[in-house]
Simulated assay, not measured.
Amino acid sequence: MKICDLSVAEDQYDYVAENMWSLVESKFNASFQTRAICLDGKPVGFFMWVPETPKRISIWRFMVDQNYQNNGIGRKALQLALDEIIDGLEEIEICYNPNNPVAKDFYGSFGFVEAGMDSEGEDVLAIIKI
């Protein structure tokens, strides 16, 4: 399975952009960082972050394929990503759809604190202060 073949469950489509678009964005923006989430060498998810300033990054994409959800993979993958990107930062931000029933508790369990809505007023902005 390739990164572009991964998909979330149908009821999650409104919460996550397709990986193809994220990969295209990353090819036109050298600072965008992408990672495959792999299990036994097989891609099962995708992660992308963007430096906003030298002290702040924004997690733009994070998904685990529908066939691998609810197995702790997302929790482990997010922790590994945070461990990789945290060095030298003062804060990490992530946005998520306010109607996403899982996001607030999941990201909150890592220390993300809701700080209001994003600049477009569509998604919740949550931040970890380092």
Rank of each mutant, 00 (worst) to 15 (best):
G45Q: 05
V44G: 08
G111M: 06
P98M: 04
Y15T: 06
V64R: 01
L89H: 02
D14I: 09
A115K: 13
T34G: 06
Y107H: 04
V102Y: 14
A30P: 09
F106D: 00
F47V: 10
R61D: 13
K27H: 02
K42R: 13
D65F: 04
I37H: 10
G41H: 09
G88P: 04
L89Y: 02
F112T: 01
C4L: 03
E25S: 09
A103C: 05
V64C: 02
Q69Y: 03
F28N: 01
E52M: 14
K76A: 15
W60P: 00
V16L: 04
G121I: 01
A126Y: 00
E18Y: 11
I57Y: 08
V64A: 01
L39R: 08
I130R: 10
P43K: 05
N19R: 03
Y15W: 14
S22Q: 11
A36Q: 10
D118R: 06
D87F: 06
G74D: 03
K2T: 15
I37W: 10
P54N: 10
I130H: 05
N70H: 13
G74E: 02
A30C: 05
L82W: 03
E10P: 01
V102F: 14
I37E: 08
I85F: 07
E18L: 13
I128Y: 09
A81D: 09
E120W: 07
N97D: 15
W60Q: 07
L82Y: 02
D105W: 01
M63C: 11
L39K: 09
E114N: 14
Q66H: 10
F47Y: 15
L125A: 04
V102N: 11
F28T: 01
I127R: 15
S119K: 12
E91K: 13
R61H: 12
L78P: 02
D123G: 01
N100P: 05
N99S: 11
S109T: 04
F110K: 09
N67H: 12
R56G: 04
N29L: 05
A9I: 13
C95H: 12
N100C: 12
I92R: 01
R35W: 11
I57H: 07
G121L: 02
G41W: 06
I128M: 15
N71M: 15
D83V: 11
F46A: 07
